[in-house]
């Protein structure tokens, strides 16, 4: 096994070009488990922890551009006010030890449907920036992840950053696990209200081959809000509409039975989480606690 440690983005892309398919490593939460358990042994590993460019985040054309090497801990401490949904999701990731090392770029690279950072990215329509020595391209997150643990990254490409708008309204993230900490999601739900564009972004995690945007649920609730002029009036969303939002989210899920939970349970829980997160977010929009 070859170990490469580029010190700049340029070097990283050259290393990846010279060793197509080389496995990038940052926080090690996936790569090291494979190595320690003797499951996969890549021929080449590229350590990205020394590449300063991917550890930065900044504002660009009114959007946030966040380096793939920003850790969950930093997402909480540095981005908590700008991207509360992502911060909430990051808080549910593992332990302080894991959050200090694990990165959102890693979640994108692994493309696990259970990746906690992914639903908030979908709910705010994030765009992923990938690059190779051939050039740079930007891909909406929903098109970037195409299957369980599959993304559209070419063998010579690396993820450099993701781009998403600063929160302009309340955001929520909720996740089911069978204990009260340190769990991989049985299922999860991310939600973002976008009052300026008068839209609602939602995403189901860990209940399908990829994170799933429940379009029908989004459309339905957007219509309800429009219908009753709720963005401006900030009145309550009728309980029946909240329920219906949950049902539609639940119907959008494509869960399987596995060791962490049954498909039926996942489908049910997605509905409950959808209803609750929307309730909390809307209450916040209204300026009501809860």
């Amino acid at each position: 096994m070859q170990f490469l440690q580029p010190h700049s983005w340029r070097e990283a892309l050259e290393a990846r070009a010279a060793h197509p398919g080389a496995r990038p490593i940052f926080g090690g939460t996936d790569v090291m488990v494979d190595l320690n358990f003797g499951r996969k042994r890549p021929e080449t590993v590229i350590d990205l922890t020394r590449v300063p460019e991917i550890r930065e985040w900044n504002r660009e054309d009114g959007l946030l551009r966040i380096g793939a090497g920003v850790t969950y801990t930093r997402a909480i401490t540095e981005l908590g006010n700008l991207l509360p949904g992502l911060a909430m999701a990051s808080r549910t990731v593992g332990s302080p030890q894991i959050r200090n090392r694990g990165t959102i770029g890693g979640n994108l690279g692994s493309a696990s449907p259970a990746g906690d950072a992914l639903p908030p990215l979908y709910a705010s329509h994030a765009v992923i920036e990938v690059a190779s020595t051939r050039g740079t391209r930007r891909i909406p997150v929903g098109q970037f992840i195409i299957g369980p643990k599959r993304n559209v990254l070419e063998p010579d490409e690396l993820i450099i950053a993701f781009i998403m708008p600063e929160a302009e309204g309340p955001q929520q993230y909720a996740k089911i696990g069978t204990r009260n900490a340190m769990v991989i999601a049985v299922c999860s739900f991310g939600l973002a209200l976008h009052p300026e564009s008068r839209s609602v972004g939602a995403c189901i995690g860990s209940a399908g081959p990829t994170p799933i945007q429940p379009r029908d649920a989004e459309n339905f609730i957007e219509d309800v809000i429009e219908e009753h002029d709720l963005w401006e009036s900030r009145a309550e969303i009728p309980a029946s509409a909240l329920d219906r939002f949950g049902v539609l989210a639940s119907e959008a899920a494509m869960p399987i039975d596995d060791v962490r939970g049954s498909a039926d349970y996942r489908r049910h829980a997605v509905g409950v989480l959808a209803r609750r997160t929307l309730t909390w977010a809307w209450n916040e929009h209204r300026g009501v606690a809860g």
Binding site: R91, K175, I176, N180, A181, R276
Partner: peptide, 11 residues
């Protein structure tokens, strides 16, 4: 129940 996974605020 659910802890920091934020599944309930009491509901």
């Amino acid at each position: 129940p659910g802890g920091v996974s934020n599944t309930t605020h009491g509901e």
